[in-house]
Design a protein around this nucleic acid. Sequence first.
DNA 1: ACTAATTATCGTAATATTGCAATATAACAA
DNA 2: TTGTTATATTGCAATATTACGATAATTAGT
Lengths: 110, 110
Amino acid sequence: MGITKTEFFSERQNKIAMMAKAIAHPARIAIIEYLLSVDTCICGDIVNKLPLAQPTISQHLKELKNAGIIKGRIEGTAICYCINKAALGTLQKYFEAITNKMTKKEGGCC
Amino acid sequence: MGITKTEFFSERQNKIAMMAKAIAHPARIAIIEYLLSVDTCICGDIVNKLPLAQPTISQHLKELKNAGIIKGRIEGTAICYCINKAALGTLQKYFEAITNKMTKKEGGCC
DNA sequence: ACTAATTATCGTAATATTGCAATATAACAA
DNA sequence: TTGTTATATTGCAATATTACGATAATTAGT
């Protein structure tokens, strides 16, 4: 069917999955890393930094924005994109909790 | 096209994206959380715990395994699945590094 | 008003993902 | 061997994703 049965899972599980999905593309990883690398967040030059056409990047930015990973603000003729610290913080805390749980568990069997 | 241009991105970026993709589904989040919740990792009952058909779960397990997120070991007639601590550790460190970089940066503009 | 610069949207083609019924495979037990 | 249990694979339909050319929309400068 190609359609995810989100209604069978918890809101939290869906949220984490959604954010992970937003990150689950090398171009979007590259966008995030570029946003982290620049001091200012007037970021009209992402298009020149990535080997993809402008509509494609615009689409990736839209997905990152929909997932809450980045925020955008109109800045004259350009758009200022920057990272939403809260969203990435949520992911970070999630994985931290997982690794904490893992270290408490002994070995397992594999 | 539906085809990701992996060759334009770094190996590290592709790897992170691949692992994120493996996690980017609520059923797979649920599988991971179930594996974390049980003490033993003889996990033949995942099928009963999730509201999806057996072939669907088998497929999700396969994807998690391909991405290195879980490991499987044959245990008689059942299969013992458990989490690959190293893989989740990689993700955890990645997000930790990102949040570290973020806290060092001042405000931004959004 | 005209032009240039920047970003978004539309349309479309190629490919990937999701889910399941049906079936296959594998290991054990009687 | 036959049956049972557990998991994998196949095949398919429905839908989603990725990418880009063409085009639109917006804003700034002249």
